[in-house]
Computed example of a mutant assay.
Amino acid sequence: MPHAVSLLRAARLTHSVKPFLARRGSRSPRCAGCRLLPSHCICGLRPVVSTDAGMCLLMADIEPLKPSNTGWLIADLVADTFAFAWARTAVDPALLALLADPQWQPYVVFPGEYAAPERVVHAVQPAPAASGRRPLFILLDGTWSEARKMFGKSPYLAHLPVLSLQPDRASEYKLRRSRRNDHFCTSEVAAMCLALAGEEQAAQALDAWLDVFSYHYLQARNQQKIDWDSPAHQRLRALEASTV
């Protein structure tokens, strides 16, 4: 069944005047479920996890169209994932309704140095919180410059707490280049949020899912076969075995 990011991608495609071609990507047909070449499909490997936390993705214009987008991986695993296209001059009423829903405690995930000190928090009350509100992590999905624009030009986020992460490692994401090691892909950020919310099993599963996706993506890009005993596959199988 299509999830929030796949539905947003389909909606974005209806407004495209020409096909989106990923840079360095293959023009061959891709699997609708994982966006990889059918020969490198990972749909049958997707782990099943349960989470109390939710994810809200605000996505820059063409982000849903990129095969390397990792917000898709979040929606693969986190059932309560919501995805919205970001625009400076308009806001989806469904997004405003979500932010106002009393079952959720929204957190804007962004570096604290860009927010007023009184808004910044570094911890999350594990779900379910004493108030009964579940954490909803708002992730700004785009390039760094796009994310900064979304953070600064979205007044409907200005009253929400800003969750400033303090990672103890560098990003391991290999599908896009970044000038800074402290910039993480959206999936990595989501995994750190889940861990802060006390959902360590889901956090590890999401990191492992990113590893498998990245491995298959790069193998397809380089026209290489899959080694089903690769470290990424072994890690995913070990996590699944530990939950049985």
Results as ranks from 00 to 15, higher is better:
211 D>L: 09
77 L>I: 09
231 P>V: 08
69 N>H: 05
226 I>W: 07
185 C>T: 02
12 R>W: 01
235 R>H: 11
58 L>V: 08
87 A>P: 07
45 L>S: 10
142 G>S: 11
166 Q>M: 07
127 A>I: 07
18 K>C: 02
20 F>S: 10
237 R>H: 14
172 E>C: 08
216 H>K: 04
160 L>P: 07
135 P>G: 07
118 E>H: 12
206 L>Y: 07
154 S>C: 09
74 I>Q: 05
4 A>P: 05
187 S>D: 04
16 S>D: 12
168 D>Y: 09
236 L>R: 06
179 R>N: 14
36 L>C: 12
54 G>R: 01
114 Y>C: 09
83 A>H: 01
162 V>R: 00
188 E>I: 09
203 A>L: 08
102 P>E: 09
34 C>D: 02
45 L>R: 08
162 V>K: 00
73 L>N: 06
151 F>D: 06
7 L>A: 03
5 V>A: 00
68 S>C: 11
142 G>I: 02
166 Q>R: 12
81 T>Q: 00
121 V>F: 04
184 F>M: 07
156 Y>V: 14
184 F>D: 03
139 L>A: 09
169 R>T: 10
10 A>N: 12
97 A>I: 11
168 D>Q: 15
100 A>N: 05
140 L>Y: 06
220 A>N: 01
49 V>E: 01
97 A>L: 13
92 D>F: 03
22 A>Q: 03
15 H>F: 05
90 A>Y: 11
164 S>V: 09
150 M>P: 04
79 A>T: 13
89 T>E: 14
55 M>N: 00
5 V>H: 00
159 H>V: 00
65 L>D: 09
43 C>M: 06
7 L>P: 00
46 R>H: 05
228 W>T: 05
77 L>G: 03
31 C>H: 10
103 Q>V: 15
64 P>Q: 10
186 T>L: 05
137 F>G: 01
148 R>L: 13
55 M>S: 00
67 P>D: 14
67 P>G: 11
110 F>D: 15
65 L>N: 04
185 C>L: 02
14 T>W: 06
163 L>V: 13
147 A>N: 05
150 M>I: 09
6 S>V: 07
174 K>E: 10
22 A>D: 03
229 D>L: 07
64 P>W: 04
187 S>N: 07
116 A>T: 08
78 V>D: 00
195 A>P: 05
55 M>D: 00
5 V>Y: 00
143 T>F: 04
165 L>P: 04
50 S>A: 07
243 T>P: 02
142 G>V: 04
85 A>L: 15
104 W>C: 11
91 V>S: 15
218 L>E: 14
75 A>G: 15
40 H>C: 13
48 V>A: 13
123 A>D: 12
31 C>S: 12
74 I>C: 10
223 Q>W: 13
57 L>V: 05
121 V>E: 02
95 L>P: 03
44 G>H: 13
148 R>A: 13
138 I>F: 03
128 P>Y: 08
233 H>Y: 12
146 E>G: 01
165 L>W: 02
62 I>H: 14
155 P>Y: 11
123 A>K: 11
